[in-house]
């Protein structure tokens, strides 16, 4: 502020000196230079003035939005979805006008002020979103508190005429089970797919069981097995294995994906490269199963020829040139002999 006051004085002196003596023109020139050098700092001080103005304006409107938000979340507004909705629109428009203000002033704001302004805007948006859980997808709202949950449900019903309950549509389907063996212990489980329409099959939650699957099947899902032996004929599509421990698998398939397997052996014939993810101590060897008519089944599935892919394992958690420590080829002397079922 001192500088600004000083300037008019120096300008008047220059003008007076200039009119009084033309010989002083050189001095005048020097003074002009000095003045133009001053131009820089003067601008700075002007911008700092408008920064201050901006900060005041910004913090005023921020506080007003914050207090409105606080009021809205505490009051009965939350109970009335339609009222709530109109308020939400107000809030979001005032937040975006605040954002606009920051954008307009961004070129003259110091980086720190800009950052903190943006931060408080994103905080405001966050608290608006917390207040208005409808914006989030409903299945997430389980973790939120009870009042928010009920307002979500009310809003969904108000907005959406579809009868489907958006809260938990999934359980209805997880009840409907596909064919498979589930929740068994210490049993021999056998199934022949011969002559039946090809479909999917599931093995899940088995402990110390032996599973024998004869004939071709379209897809095989294996989930949560412990200490089991699984012998299966050809799978036309893919096998998906998740969470198995201390098991032996003898499988033939177009694709095989193995997730979270521990200390298990896989005897595979597979057209593509098998993959492992989150596995440890898994070992691989070639397919070694036979049953009456397996040759025809393998041929029909396009799996009659050994591809050698049982040893071409991709570890999705080991994307390096050196071999993955998570799997190995099972030594020939340690392999089981051919299995007949």
């Amino acid at each position: 502020m001192e500088e600004e006051q000083e300037e008019p004085q120096s300008i008047t002196t220059t003008a007076a000196a200039l009119s009084a003596d033309p010989a002083l023109q050189k001095k005048h020139q020097a003074m002009l230079d000095r003045l133009s050098n001053r131009h820089q700092p003067r601008q700075k001080s002007a911008s700092s003035a408008s920064t201050a103005a901006f900060l005041t304006q910004f913090s005023d409107s921020r506080h007003s939005i914050e207090s409105q938000l606080a009021e809205a979340s505490s009051s009965k507004l939350a109970a009335d979805p339609s009222l709530m909705k109109s308020h939400m629109a107000d809030f979001s428009s005032s937040i975006s006008s605040l954002e606009q203000l920051v954008a307009e002033n961004s070129h003259l704001l110091p980086p720190y002020e800009l950052r903190s302004a943006l931060k408080s805007i994103s905080d405001l948006k966050q608290s608006l979103e917390n207040l208005n859980p409808k914006k989030k997808f409903s299945f997430k709202s389980k973790s939120q508190n009870q009042t928010q949950k009920s307002s979500t449900a009310a809003q969904c019903q108000a907005l959406n005429t579809a009868p489907a309950a958006p809260e938990q549509p999934a359980p209805r389907f997880s009840v409907q089970d596909s064919p498979g063996f589930r929740n068994k212990e210490s049993q021999i489980l056998a199934k022949s797919f011969k002559g039946s329409e090809i479909g999917e099959f599931t093995l899940s939650d088995l402990e110390s069981c032996e599973v024998r699957l004869i004939g071709p099947v379209n897809a095989l899902f294996i989930n949560r097995l412990r200490n089991c032996r699984v012998y299966a004929g050809p799978v036309l599509g893919s096998v998906l294995i998740e969470q198995v421990d201390s098991c032996i698998f003898v499988l033939a398939s177009h694709q095989i994906r193995i997730h979270r397997a521990r200390e298990s052996d896989f005897y595979l014939r597979v057209r593509s490269r098998p993959i492992i993810e989150d596995c440890g101590g898994v070992r691989f060897a070639p397919y070694c199963l036979s049953y009456d008519g397996i040759e025809d089944d393998l041929k029909a599935a396009g799996l009659e020829a050994e591809t050698g892919n049982w040893a071409n394992v991709d570890d999705f958690q080991w994307l390096r040139a050196v071999p993955s420590p998570n799997w190995s080829v099972l030594e020939e002397t340690k392999r089981i002999s051919s299995v007949e079922i």
Partner: peptide, 22 residues
């Protein structure tokens, strides 16, 4: 996908489970 597999859910059922309407 995989509508050819017996036991697969229909597109309508998938739409419901995935909550696409909302």
């Amino acid at each position: 996908n995989k509508q050819d597999i017996k036991g697969a859910l229909t597109p309508e059922e998938i739409a419901k489970v995935l909550n696409l309407e909302n």
